[in-house]
């Protein structure tokens, strides 16, 4: 209620160098998520230097998922540009592709883990090695973030269809795209990290 009343005022403000408080909040949240993964990866490093560490070759599927998520970053960027140019049809196509690519990414991650399992590497449960468990937890939590991005896209979609009022505020789509790029970069960091540090 009053939230919207106040917020609707911001949305009209020009974006020339001034940051919308919600966008700012997102950046701080991104910092916070970074700390979470920093904690995971440093715990990984600490643990790696101790005994009985398993050296794991990353599954091929992770390469495909990396490609998928990079493409999705491009599509969401284009979607954002079409939205700004008010090319709504193009925007809708591109954002749908992005969401689908997000889901493809998650599926590929899952396939990656089945691949590992087929090679006899147990992720969780009795007899699992912390190296594999770390991979499972960290990749799993990254996937949750991708799914959160997909959910956000669905959310603005449903909102756009259900409300009679046409809302042309670019803030939500801009925030989603920022988050999406962040999650993409986060994966690239994790991917390189897992390849390098094992």
């Amino acid at each position: 209620m009053s939230d919207n009343l106040i917020m609707s005022q911001y949305q009209n403000t020009p974006s020339g160098g001034r940051i919308h408080p919600h966008k700012f909040t997102l950046w701080v949240a991104i910092g916070s998520i970074c700390m979470m993964f920093a904690a995971f990866t440093s715990a990984y490093i600490v643990k790696r230097n101790q005994s009985k560490w398993l050296d794991i070759d990353l599954p091929i599927a992770f390469w495909y998922s990396t490609i998928a998520i990079i493409i999705s970053s491009i599509t969401i960027h284009l979607a954002f540009k079409s939205f700004k140019a008010r090319e709504m049809v193009r925007y809708r196509t591109l954002i749908t592709i992005t969401a689908i690519l997000g889901i493809v990414f998650c599926v590929l991650q899952f396939i990656g883990f089945s691949e590992l399992k087929n090679h006899g590497i147990q992720i969780f449960g009795q007899g699992s090695n912390p190296a594999a468990s770390f991979l499972g937890v960290i990749v799993g939590f990254h996937v949750l973030h991708v799914l959160a991005g997909v959910a956000a896209i669905l959310f603005i979609f449903i909102k756009a269809y259900s409300s009679k009022l046409k809302n042309y505020s670019i803030v939500p789509i801009e925030m989603i795209s920022t988050f999406w790029h962040f999650v993409d970069l986060l994966w690239i960091y994790l991917f390189i990290f897992f390849m390098w540090v094992r």
Partner: peptide, 9 residues
């Protein structure tokens, strides 16, 4: 904001 995520991990 910087330390609670670490606890969560």
């Amino acid at each position: 904001v910087l330390s609670f995520p670490v606890l969560l991990s």
